[in-house]
Design a protein around this nucleic acid. Sequence first.
DNA 1: AACCAACCTTGGGTGGACCAAGAGTAGCGT
DNA 2: ACGCTACTCTTGGTCCACCCAAGGTTGGTT
Lengths: 145, 145
Amino acid sequence: MEVEAQEAPARLRGKPSWLISKTSARTHRLIAEAMTAVGAHAYHFAILAALEEFGPQSQVRIGQRCGIDQSDMHAMLAELAEQGHIRRAPDPEDRRRNLITLTETGRRRMVALDAAISDIQDDVFGVLSEEERRLLIGMITRVIG
Amino acid sequence: MEVEAQEAPARLRGKPSWLISKTSARTHRLIAEAMTAVGAHAYHFAILAALEEFGPQSQVRIGQRCGIDQSDMHAMLAELAEQGHIRRAPDPEDRRRNLITLTETGRRRMVALDAAISDIQDDVFGVLSEEERRLLIGMITRVIG
DNA sequence: AACCAACCTTGGGTGGACCAAGAGTAGCGT
DNA sequence: ACGCTACTCTTGGTCCACCCAAGGTTGGTT
């Protein structure tokens, strides 16, 4: 006698917010596991990706781009610095700022994390065709606006 | 000089999991605010909806249907009972169980919460056409599978 | 009777998101 | 030159959703 997953109420099943919440929770769990397994964190990937795409920048700027709070950013950068993936140096043009720079090992790390996370995308959204997946990305992007 | 939301890295923008996570966070916040404003909780709606659709049932059964943990279920039911929206009575056929029953005020409460939550769906997903919204629901439903 | 399974209850733990205050620096108007 | 405001980083918290574990009670089985 296994524990069967019962059918959810129609009033929940019909709400996009509920469906999205469940999907988000699932991917979040999978990504968290994958990141922990390699001593990383989902935020690490976001930060490294921002540095790779936009070059050296301040902590706040990265936070604005990725939607990460200042205090969390601080903790994440400490981890990334200790792992040698970034360097922190005071900005010579504005000594209030820490200029965060991506190191070469950091760039490789980013690529590796991207691969791992992309695999999870395939696991979760693999039931959709390529066309559908593009459609989904397009629609949610508009929703986020 | 406002704080402009910077563009997110393409490596994030292209990941369905990231888009969905952001959307989920936003709707979650809106719903939480709306529920708190009327002394409710998102779980309340889920529980009441399950009772309305499937009739009186045990706590575990509701939890399985809605994806709510036993301990959280306990707390939520205590709140709902105190507000008079449900009744707990030992199941005469199996005295291990608490049979949860929806009261008339509970049914009305559920309808009201449904309206509030549906409004938020419109706020968030209103940029999509009806057709797109159906498409989105269909695709995510398949993803959850 | 003995044993296992299911249910409710209680308590606690964890991680992500968020908030507030303080210290240092920059820019600006006066 | 001065004071004021704005910005940045750092530190130390809060809050909540989600999850886990143990104990006590009842039901079913052998």
